[in-house]
Design a protein around this nucleic acid. Structure first.
Lengths: 324, 324
DNA sequence: CCGTCGATGTGTATCGTTACACACATGCGC
DNA sequence: GCGCATGTGTGTAACGATACACATCGACGG
């Protein structure tokens, strides 16, 4: 920039203003400057230097508690990210993806990220990456929890929603099979019996609690309920885990934690056993099973607005039960 | 950092080395420095200042020629991005998403991105965003074209592949229906007759050319061939467009440009009319239609490596025909 | 003809870091 | 006791940009 200033015969500040506040500089001068820049192949202010001087990067960091490719494959994460990206586009913010796989250098990644704020996709309790995020002192929001000081939690009341849909499922049935998202980072799959509802993922935990609430309300004992856990939120995993489970149990309804899983169940059992999903996506509509409607897109928007400093609090996201 | 140096009673450089090259500084001094940092709440070197000084940001920019949410919904884009993100993770690079929707400020976004290199997801011919990318002078790669000076093109020979699969499809059939990806940014859908193979998207164009090659080889006139164009690479769009087309034409084979579309065709016509896909995904295997195998994941890896400066050229990605 | 105002250009200081070259001490072999 | 390698600490000088306050000048009302 200094060179351009010399070439154009003006002060560096004039060049700076030419780019950042064109109206502040006379049209003639502006032309001279741009011409000089053209001659020298100068492309405009360096974004990094600008960030340093201004103290803001114009970037939002999105922490994904999974291998990055997960973000592109899980439909729920996708919807959420779509909401985040919408805010970024509207506000001309960059979107920086930060993987947090549970490795020790996750925190470094966060510390070294050149961003103004963080959006965190739900992770496990006590994830140290949350400490790293909070330590930056920058605005941050997390979808689905866990809650933490310094990070705004954006999460619907999953427990209530889970209870509602489970009650609905149990209206005409008596022996449910629960299909659950992973409990923890190990992501061990398998069939359990009325497990402690102590999953490390708060989202999984709240839903389990809600299911248990509903089941106990009907007089059944949670300890007797089969719970099949998938290693991934994936339709085929849902199909597989249910096939396996059916070798040991004979449920008359299957209660799942996502539409993908519910679709997988349908793949396995057809209409023979009713199933419920979660998220009320196209799948739920086209295959015709009950689901919980909650907008992950809207939650993405909310999180991004917080991270961008556009707001500091949000109403808890709403949910509703779509009966089918 | 200066403050920490004072607090610890050492030179700023010592503090810097404490973080970036700990082995360069005596253990005792290091401890003193870290202690002082702790007292002052210093979290380590500022990434932005570091980038400025070092001249590199540790970020890769990915230009998506679509609304960002598209990246999270199109399975092909997802696979590609998964490959890109793999390279980022391995090399500790950040991943910055840059939307390019065709709006005039796309170029600004590129110019203002604090990244070391660019990966571009296939876009239309003459997209000005490519000029902006090339103008940065940073390493860049584009998947699927269009080709351009200063940007490495990573693309299989789509035309040959298209000819191969179309020939395969025409072995036992005589009147094909082609289902095509969008021609241009307008994304108008609809049914055409042997259109000029002049789509703005080079990927669409090459495949059309290949289909035409194969069709003309069997003695049919391209001008007579019905081509249904979808506005989006989406299973349901595939279903819809074929339903519509079947009101006007009676094909005995459907040749599509993606497995999603092929699956949509199956949804519409079942096994009544054979169909071919593209990408050889799980869908192709489970539904049992022929497809072109090419790894978008690997292409993502290749593009990212180029953008990261890890290599400067790539072999053309391989493709193969999976007959079913 | 003076005072004031708006429009426009310019110096200064600083954002937080690090490459580089150098200073100095220590220890070791001979 | 000399020469030399090694291990540690320290100035200097940028990296590229901009906030802020100030200087200058012509215009214009009274």
């Amino acid at each position: 920039m200094r060179d351009v200033a010399v070439e154009a015969g003006v002060a560096p500040m004039t060049v700076s203003y030419t780019y950042t506040r064109p109206e502040r500089v006379a049209a003639a001068t502006r032309a001279t400057v741009l011409e000089a820049a053209e001659r020298l192949g100068y492309r405009g202010p360096d974004p990094v230097a600008r960030s340093l001087r201004n103290g803001s990067t114009g970037n939002l960091g999105v922490v994904l508690g999974e291998h990055l490719s997960y973000a592109f494959e899980d439909p729920q994460a996708s919807r959420f990210l779509a909401g985040v990206s919408q805010v970024c586009v509207e506000n001309r913010l960059g979107l920086v993806l930060i993987p947090a796989t549970g490795a020790p250098d996750d925190s470094d990644r966060v510390r070294e990220a050149a961003v103004d704020g963080f959006v965190v996709w739900t992770t496990v309790d006590g994830d140290p990456v949350l400490d790293a995020v909070a330590a930056t002192g920058r605005p941050a929001a997390i979808q689905g929890g866990p809650g933490r000081d310094g990070i705004v939690t954006v999460s619907p009341n999953d427990r209530d929603a889970a209870r509602a849909i489970a009650s609905h499922a149990l209206a005409d049935a008596s022996s449910p099979l629960v299909v659950s998202l992973p409990f923890d980072r190990n992501r061990a799959g398998g069939l359990l019996r009325g497990p402690e509802t102590s999953a490390d993922y708060p989202v999984t935990r709240s839903r389990l609690e809600g299911f248990r609430d509903a089941i106990e309300e009907t007089g059944r004992r949670w300890a007797d309920i089969p719970v099949a856990v998938v290693p991934r939120n994936d339709r085929r995993e849902g199909e597989r885990v249910v096939r396996d489970a059916l070798e040991q149990v004979r449920p008359d309804v299957v209660i799942t934690m996502s539409d993908q899983l519910a679709a997988g169940v349908r793949d396995a059992v057809g209409e023979a056993i009713p199933v419920t999903g979660w998220d009320d996506s196209d799948l739920a509509e086209s295959m015709g099973f009950a689901s919980i409607r909650q907008s992950l897109y809207d939650q993405g928007v909310a999180c991004a607005q917080i991270a961008a400093g556009l707001r500091t609090t949000v109403e808890p996201p709403v949910w509703s039960l779509t009966r089918r």
